[in-house]
């Protein structure tokens, strides 16, 4: 914020303090945001730190330990090759978060560019939205499988395929809310003030679509994690020895009647991760609207 100079007076200090206080109240009024954020951060920290806290190789087989139930040595038990499930789960989280995060970021960037321009220029709208319609018409997971079949299996190709799958839905969300913002009187007022098209698009319309976009991004993050797991489960995702939640679920399907923890643990990891992302997204939406009052929900 460039307009805040160093020599801000006491008046402005008091106002900033008041505004910070209001923000704090709003934050505390949405427990979902805090729970989702904490859950997501715990998973993130575990995933980032696991190579540093444990020397165990997630892919090294210890055949004598195969299918051990949870105990003191292996807190979540072992799989059919005797690999520690907890360690593999954390390495799987690295893959899931990396894929999910990249897909969310890339599809948001593409979706925002497409959506904003489509909302503002009529001709572009027709062209871009028909392409998006076409992509949406194909079931997402099938499109991803087809793309991966063409591109080959690797984590980057999963990211590219899922980005193509999710970009149209981001573009549609952005376009829908951008069209609402475009009709706002303050956009008209800006035109009267002499704003150019680019300035209207990026300085007025973009901030207006940020809050639906963050919600959408968190959902896409969550959905991409599920899709990545599905793709891996179907053998079209991350190649086999590497740990990913989908691979682990697929491996467990042969042994889950004997060792149910091999299925429950990666399944629960997907659920927890997706749940905290969704809570985070919902909470963010409430928090980011400057007009929501703290405690208004009670």
């Amino acid at each position: 914020m460039s307009f805040i100079n160093k020599n801000t007076s006491a008046v402005s200090e008091a106002i900033f303090k008041e505004q910070r206080q209001l923000r704090k109240e709003r934050l505390l009024a949405s427990p979902g945001l805090i729970i989702g954020f904490v859950g997501f951060v715990i998973i993130l920290i575990l995933a980032v730190l696991v190579p540093f806290i444990s020397k165990t190789d997630p892919n090294a087989m210890v055949v004598v330990d195969r299918l051990k139930p949870p105990d003191g040595e292996h807190i979540l038990g072992t799989d059919e090759f005797g690999r520690d499930l907890f360690i593999r789960l954390m390495y799987g989280a690295r893959v899931s978060l990396w894929v999910g995060g990249c897909v969310a970021v890339f599809s948001c960037i593409c979706g925002v560019i497409i959506g904003i321009y489509a909302s503002y220029f009529k001709l572009l709208d027709h062209i871009l939205m028909r392409i998006c319609d076409g992509l949406i018409a194909i079931p997402g997971i099938l499109l991803a499988i087809a793309l991966i079949a063409a591109l080959g299996t690797s984590s980057w190709n999963v990211i590219v395929a899922l980005t193509i799958v999710y970009t149209p839905s981001v573009a549609r969300t952005v376009r829908a809310s951008a069209m609402v913002v475009r009709e706002q009187p303050y956009v008209e007022a800006a035109k009267v003030q002499g704003f150019g098209n680019a300035r209207i698009l990026w300085k007025l319309i973009l901030p207006g679509v940020i809050s639906p976009l963050t919600v959408q991004a968190s959902f896409i993050f969550a959905q991409a994690i599920i899709s990545e797991a599905s793709l891996s489960f179907l053998g079209a995702g991350i190649p086999a020895p590497a740990a990913s939640w989908g691979n682990m679920l697929q491996a467990s399907k042969l042994v889950f009647s004997k060792a149910p923890w091999t299925m429950i643990c990666p399944g629960a990891a997907v659920v927890l991760c997706v749940l905290s992302l969704n809570l985070l997204g919902d909470g963010l939406r409430d928090f980011m609207d400057p007009r929501t009052k703290g405690g208004a929900k009670k």
Partner: peptide
């Protein structure tokens, strides 16, 4: 220039007043 009837919605709700006015000058 124009003054609107419903001025509150003719102002960007996400910017501080100083920033709104300064932007016009920048342009």
């Amino acid at each position: 220039q124009m003054v609107f009837q419903d001025t509150i919605s003719a102002l960007n709700p996400r910017q501080r007043i100083g920033a709104i006015l300064e932007e016009t000058l920048t342009i």
